[in-house]
Design a protein around this nucleic acid. Structure first.
Lengths: 343, 343
DNA sequence: CAAGATAACCAAAGCGCTTTGAGGCAATTA
DNA sequence: TAATTGCCTCAAAGCGCTTTGGTTATCTTG
């Protein structure tokens, strides 16, 4: 059932039927109702391909799922971010186009999506320092929103980000207030911009209290359970072990916890742990009472916000850039406590 | 730069340019080369919207990301499956359309995608017993491949699945061979078809050896760390605790491990654990030497296979259904050992 | 009551491709 | 030489919508 057939059945022109269904004013209300009823009855849905060609809009936004060519790691954040963004797209009649490409082909893919007219805009993930995707996208004039900022890029662009520096600053202060001075950092890979900012927050808090930073208790790696476990194990077995850990994710925090408990220590009593909790739906930090003390910011919400921003930008490209810095909550769980007295 | 402009620049008709670029034979090789060179030089990419309208094909496949209305859990399997499938789409010039919808609106979404002509086929995930999506899709004539089979559906349809029954049967036998008779099952939610099959495998293996099944050591819940921890804790604290666990995922296995170690027991010596390892990229079962003994099947590979199947089906809808049952490997890690002597 | 305004509808062009059905031309055959 | 055959190339139709620029009644208004 297409527009032509439907209009013939109704004895009207395609023009009128189209206008009626799209809510244009110059249609008699009685006629409109008749048309809407017939459309529903015949289960008519306008052909998306034709709409796209006729309007020149793709009614779709692109997300690139970058598959790291070297380590093959898929970003665990991705699924929840997508879930949030996708909700917004659905509500606004947009489709989400997902391209899975090797991370070194990412820029070419943006260019391709743009020149084929497959999308009206894109969202970029996993931002690195001096991320060259941002100037490239600005240059090609494809509307975009970045999930995370890129230090070193001067031009204005739209982004959604968590105040990572502040989150880790507060977490570190919280531990310092509890009397900890030997605080370890189990960070993500530090070519990611957010990881740099977190480290900065950590270092700033230490410096403000005159506590020296020790590279021996600062690790940086993929945010996996195993990597968290290894880093924490190494540090706990070394002389002068940390009494507290700052972990970059739920998974690395779980690894840290395992290292602690595996040594017969009790988390929250002997060793404190604070994680960054993205509120991933399948990695809940307890139900009700949180297990880990955490700085918390929902990545799903970030997805919703970024998607809405992008749709605004597409609707009116003259819109000034929007930037949204989310503050992470500091929530108190069972994994932190006063620093143990020196024995 | 569009086809018309390009053909004018070349002094040829759009027809010839189109045929040349699409590899039709009736074009002089010299002309073709000239055209291809010009296309590259002017960075010409045919407009996807126009191609879609003209050919009547969407050149896109749909994936539905079902967001459970009640528990809001996002399937952790999803990201890796998508990564695998997406590779195949990219290689074949297909786009992947992701719809995020409440799980009770899933069928309506398939119908919508089909009638708008937005996709040429879909892949369905998280199959339930008697899953009504399958007859619905067969009925509406939209090509699809199912990731997982649905017990109770008689009509033939294309699927990719892991031999879940066999995997859990073998794992159970392996534990029985090690002398365990008190084997707990920490299963996924049992309205999922794969969970039922796994339980069947477990029960069949027990029955074959004349070992009675005990509901007290069979749990079923979301496959999260916390849920695994709770189930294992409860069972370990009860009288006559299990000496071995069969866990449905890496995450629940991690929860089981925590419960074991939290009780001062050693995994692999005091209590054995076997997990089902989907080889999720951010939940690696060790690097090199596996931590957990596991039945292993890559969900990313399953994504690749399912995608290729779907593209075959789209290319020739008269194709007979394809069905592919993957066998899970049983890999030996450090989490299993002989049953401890009764003390 | 004529002229302008308004309401309701429509024919046709156009979006940028693919594809059908025809040529035109040189080479081959009778 | 005329007819036939391939080889290239092209004009034009068509995909299913939206949108422009009318047109025809019906109302107002001076």
């Amino acid at each position: 059932m297409n527009l032509k057939e439907l209009s013939q059945k109704l004895g009207l022109s395609p023009t009128t039927v189209s206008r009626a269904l799209n809510g244009y004013p110059e249609v008699n209300e009685a006629t409109r109702e008749r048309i809407v009823a017939a459309a529903k009855r015949h289960n008519y849905r306008p052909n998306a391909r034709a709409i796209r060609l006729a309007t020149g809009r793709a009614m779709a936004v692109g997300h690139i799922f970058p598959v790291a060519t070297k380590n093959e790691i898929v970003n665990p954040i991705f699924a929840d971010f997508i879930a949030g963004a996708g909700e917004v797209y659905s509500q606004n009649g947009y489709d989400m186009l997902l391209s899975v490409v090797a991370d070194d082909a990412e820029q070419a893919t943006y260019r391709d999506l743009k020149s084929r007219g497959a999308v009206d805009g894109v969202i970029i993930h996993a931002v690195r320092t001096f991320d060259d995707r941002i100037p490239a996208l600005l240059d090609m004039g494809l509307p975009f929103v970045s999930h995370g900022r890129a230090t070193g890029i001067e031009q204005p662009y739209s982004w959604v980000d968590v105040n990572n520096r502040r989150a880790f600053l507060r977490a570190t202060e919280f531990l310092l207030d509890l009397g900890h001075t030997r605080i370890a950092l189990v960070n993500g890979v530090e070519n990611m911009d957010f990881a740099i900012r977190r480290r900065t927050g950590y270092l700033d808090a230490l410096a403000a209290r005159g506590v020296g930073a020790d590279p021996a208790i600062m690790a940086t790696d993929e945010m996996t359970e195993l990597s968290g476990y290894r880093a924490a194990s190494r540090m706990l077995d070394a002389p002068n072990p940390p009494t507290a850990f700052l972990a970059a994710s739920m998974l690395s925090g779980m690894g840290v916890r395992r290292a602690i408990e595996g040594r017969g220590l009790k988390m929250g009593r002997d060793v404190s742990v604070i994680i960054f909790d993205d509120e991933l739906s399948y990695l809940r930090n307890g139900e009700g009472l949180p297990i880990f003390t955490a700085t918390r910011s929902s990545v799903r919400d970030a997805g919703r916000i970024a998607a809405q921003m992008l749709l605004d930008l597409i609707a009116d490209p003259e819109n000034t850039v929007q930037q949204r810095l989310l503050e992470a909550d500091l929530i108190i769980g069972q994994s932190t406590g006063p620093a143990p007295r020196r024995g």
